[in-house]
Every structure is written in structure tokens, then in C-alpha cells.
């Protein structure tokens, strides 16, 4: 009898516990849902806030010049493509196609040279011991802190001596010498995170220093190299001051200057054309970013190692 009573009590206790557990779990799930709802609401709100100017820009590029200043919303009353057509023609003798081509004449070699030079320089700093390494590294970091503006005049004078003015050389050639301290620093940090064992294994397998870099490090450095390429691409696309200083003939202008030109070519600014061309200028950066995004975000796979 007593045993039966005890077992009943136990049964009851177990049921209570289970119920309690269920309640707790439900509460936890509910709290989780509320939490994520709040989180997403905030994220969406901030996202809209940040993206709205871009959306407005795209919308406004289809508006007529008059409509841009008369309506607040981003949706045009009717889609007007004249901004794009006229904008592309520009007020100069060249079309935007020329300016785009010019931009790529700067961007492509600059990106390639930057990636190569920063990788090689970072390899030297991250993996080799040599005399004066500390001093050189300090200088590198010091240039990070130096405002670009202070270099403009001496650089201009130097390039003038080289007879490089009104050519793309002042914009492109420095990239071959790893002048972007930020990229070099970023690469060094990334390389330091890579296990040295792999390189030692490669040395035993018969690689020399350059083969180690080529066969072993570069495949692992891909995410960092893509980041460098991406940043350099965007910064160069958007660079205004550099071309403004060194390029003087309209024929050689990149899009950043061409855009500015469309704003002060006449007293009456054709805003819809300017906005339309701004949209077009944005496209390459966006496309490149979305293509590279996977690698950009991709963590490094050092999975040949432990773990």
C-alpha cells in the first residue's frame, strides 16, 4: 500500500517537473522570438535609413529635371530615360564610354599592381628576418598616420620632373611599390595568422621562398587579396583628387571628374543627367562587390591543420 502511494507521489512529481520544463521551454522560445523581432525591426529601420539616399538617387534619375525638386518621394510619376541618354552623351565631345574606359585604364592596372606588391611586401615583413626590419616596419606604420594631403605637393613636383603629368602614370605606378600602408598592414596581420607548418612542409617538399608564396600562401591568402582588390577598386573608382591634379586633358578624364564636369559645364545643372550617370558609375562597384562578397566574407580555411 505504502509502496503504491510512494510510486503515485513519484509519478506526480515527475509530471510536475515535466510540465514545469515545458513551460520554461515555451517561455524561452517566446522570449527568443520577441528578441529576434526587435533585433530585425532595428536592423531593418537602420537599413532603410542608410539605403534611402541610394534608392532616392535611382528613383530621381528617372524623373524629369523639374520633378526632382518638386516631389519628395522616390518613385517618379513616369519613367523618363532622357537623363540616361543625354547624360551618356555628355556636354563634351566624348561620351561617357570614353570616361569609363579611362577609369578602367587606371583602376585595372592599379588593382593588379596593388595586390601583387602588397602581397610580396607583406610576405617579406611577415616571414623573413632581415636587418632593419623593425625600422622599416615603423616607417610603414608611420606613413599610415601621415595625411595624404601633405604629400600632394612634393609628389606633384616629383612627377612633373619625371614628365608624367597628364598621364595615368602618377596614379598607377606607385601601386607597384606597395605604397598603401594600410593594405600591407592588413596583409601582414592576415599572414601572421596562417600556420607556419605549411610553409615548412613546403620547404621540405622542395619549394624555394617564391614557390612557397605562389603554391602555398597565395591560395590561402585569397580572401585577404580579394579584400585588398575590392577596397582598391572602390577607392580608385571614387578617387577624385588624384585625377583632378594630374590629368589635364578632357580626353583622359575618368568618370569621377566627368561627373563633376556635368555639374558645372553650364550654369543650369541637368540634375537628372547627373543623377543618371551617378547611378551608372555606381554599377561597377556594386557588381564587383557582389561578385567578391563570398570570398570577402569567407573566413580563411586552414583546415589542413589541426581541428
Amino acid at each position: 500500500m505504502k509502496a503504491k502511494q510512494e510510486s503515485q507521489i513519484n509519478h506526480q512529481e515527475v509530471n510536475d517537473l515535466l510540465e514545469n520544463d515545458m513551460l520554461l521551454r515555451k517561455r524561452r522560445i517566446r522570449r527568443g522570438k520577441i528578441n529576434s523581432a526587435v533585433r530585425y525591426a532595428i536592423l531593418i529601420a537602420v537599413g532603410i535609413l542608410m539605403l534611402y539616399p541610394l534608392v532616392w538617387l535611382i528613383g530621381a534619375s528617372f524623373k524629369t529635371n523639374a520633378e526632382i525638386f518638386t516631389s519628395i518621394g522616390f518613385m517618379p510619376k513616369e519613367f523618363d530615360f532622357s537623363g540616361y541618354i543625354r547624360g551618356w552623351k555628355t556636354s563634351t565631345e566624348y561620351t561617357f564610354a570614353t570616361y569609363f574606359a579611362n577609369t578602367f585604364k587606371i583602376v585595372i592596372p592599379k588593382v593588379i599592381l596593388t595586390v601583387i606588391s602588397t602581397t610580396v611586401t607583406a610576405y617579406g615583413f611577415a616571414r623573413f628576418k632581415f636587418k632593419g626590419k623593425k625600422l622599416l616596419f615603423s616607417i610603414l606604420i608611420a606613413t599610415l598616420l601621415l595625411p595624404n594631403v601633405v604629400l600632394r605637393i612634393p609628389q606633384y613636383l616629383m612627377y612633373r620632373e619625371f614628365n608624367w603629368l597628364d598621364s595615368y602614370k602618377p596614379l598607377v605606378v606607385p601601386a607597384a611599390f606597395a605604397v598603401d600602408a594600410f593594405f600591407v598592414f592588413m596583409m601582414i596581420q592576415f599572414m601572421k595568422g596562417l600556420p607556419k607548418d605549411l610553409e615548412e612542409a613546403a620547404v621540405i617538399d622542395g619549394c624555394n621562398s617564391f614557390q612557397v608564396l605562389w603554391y602555398i600562401l597565395i591560395p590561402m591568402l585569397k580572401p585577404a587579396m580579394i579584400s585588398v582588390a575590392l577596397f582598391q577598386f572602390m577607392w580608385t573608382m571614387n578617387d577624385f583628387l588624384g585625377p583632378l591634379i594630374y590629368i589635364s586633358s578632357v580626353k583622359k578624364y575618368p568618370v569621377s571628374i566627368a561627373l563633376k564636369m556635368s555639374m558645372d559645364a553650364s550654369t543650369l545643372v541637368q540634375w537628372n543627367q547627373t543623377l543618371a550617370m551617378s547611378v551608372i558609375v555606381l554599377i561597377p562597384s556594386l557588381v564587383v562587390f557582389f561578385i567578391a562578397q563570398k570570398h570577402f566574407v569567407d573566413g580563411i580555411s586552414t583546415t589542413g591543420m589541426k581541428g
Binding site: P195, D197, A202, D205, M220, M305
Partner: peptide, 26 residues
């Protein structure tokens, strides 16, 4: 000599075959 490392030190971007063949190629 040939060395086996504590962390295996396999090249992550190569298959097992490529890893094993790498030294021989050189």
C-alpha cells in the same frame, strides 16, 4: 628527409592526392 608535423600541415587547397604528389613534382 621527410617530416610529419604535429598539425599535419596538409595544404588546405589541395586534395589528398595533390598533397602527396606535391613534393614529387618538385
Amino acid at each position: 628527409i621527410a617530416m610529419v608535423f604535429q598539425n599535419y600541415a596538409l595544404y588546405p587547397h589541395m586534395t589528398a592526392y595533390e598533397n602527396m604528389a606535391f613534393g614529387l613534382k618538385f
